[in-house]
Amino acid sequence: MRAPQRSNRAYRAVAFVIRPVLLAITRRDWRGTEHLPASGGYIAAANHMTNFDPLTFAHFLYDNGVAPKILAKSSLFKVPVLGRVLRATGQIPVHRDSVQAGQSLDAAVEAVHAGECVAVFPEGTLTREPDLWPMLGKTGVARLALSTRAPVVPVAQWGAQDVLGRYSKMFRPLPPKKVTVVAGPPVVLDDLYERPLDTATLREATERVMVAITALLEEIRGERAPVERFDPRRNRPQGQA
């Protein structure tokens, strides 16, 4: 397979090692790749169920000609070896609840303007919804989308949790697990571009992204998500737009 044009040497080296492993332990059902822009910067936003799904998300994008810049929590950049890999491949650290938080957005905006695909998990952490449905999203994806006016492609994943469960340390590579990843058409946000970048606008944009991801996941799972979205701050659902 030909490596994505924007991948650097470190990215290609990591893919050379990890991709064969992923090919061996997963059976891939990838759909909606026609919705990935052929040129220009954009945002790919996916649901987050397990610490394994960043790899399946990146695998889906990489094999479709994209070397994503993933927004990852800053603590991962301090882990020996892993941190070095993340920095070498150009991933973007997210500094939560700190004075450096704005730097993450600035770096992501710069990457999008440079024509990169910035991959985000709008929930900000593993979903806490009991049945692994997407929970309430954080507004970072909205800030990035409205600041850059770049397309936001929703992506839903299912099956990665069978390889490594949520909060589990038990890795189950065999037998190979079916992993489904589906991309949808870009979320409509252009009607929000001229509105003030206030809480109401950010929450509306964020929820549109989460609704699109959830709809794709409903198609994959063949069932309906709860009518109310889970809000981890209150440990109860919140009305879903």
Rank of each mutant, 00 (worst) to 15 (best):
P237Y: 06
A142H: 00
R233V: 05
A67F: 05
T139G: 00
T89K: 03
I43G: 08
V227A: 15
W158N: 11
L192F: 07
N64M: 14
P130A: 13
R87G: 14
E116Q: 11
Y167C: 14
A44H: 05
R6V: 15
P151L: 11
V187E: 08
L144Y: 09
L189F: 00
A119K: 03
G40Q: 05
R87P: 08
L126G: 10
V109I: 11
R236V: 06
E34C: 13
R27P: 07
A156I: 00
P93H: 00
I43Q: 06
K138M: 00
S168C: 12
P80M: 09
S147M: 09
A156K: 05
G115N: 07
V227D: 12
M49P: 01
R27S: 14
L71S: 02
I92R: 03
P20M: 03
L132Y: 12
R221Y: 10
Q91R: 01
E228N: 11
I213S: 02
P151V: 05
P226G: 01
H48D: 02
V120L: 13
V179M: 05
V227Q: 14
T180K: 08
P93Q: 02
R19C: 15
A212Y: 04
K73S: 06
P54Y: 02
L55A: 11
L86P: 07
P68N: 06
G102W: 02
G102N: 04
D198H: 04
V209T: 10
R9F: 14
P20T: 02
V112M: 07
P80Q: 11
D190G: 12
Y62S: 15
L23W: 08
V79W: 05
E223N: 12
M49G: 11
L105V: 03
A160M: 00
R143Y: 09
Q161D: 03
P175F: 05
A24Y: 01
G32E: 12
K78A: 11
D63H: 10
F121I: 05
L174P: 08
K73E: 06
V79A: 09
T180P: 04
R28V: 14
Y167G: 15
A101H: 00
H113D: 12
R233H: 11
S147E: 13
F77N: 01
V188R: 08
A241I: 10
F16Q: 14
F60V: 10
Q103W: 10
R236C: 09
S75P: 02
K69S: 12
L71N: 01
L132K: 10
G239S: 15
R233T: 10
D231S: 09
N64I: 09
P232T: 02
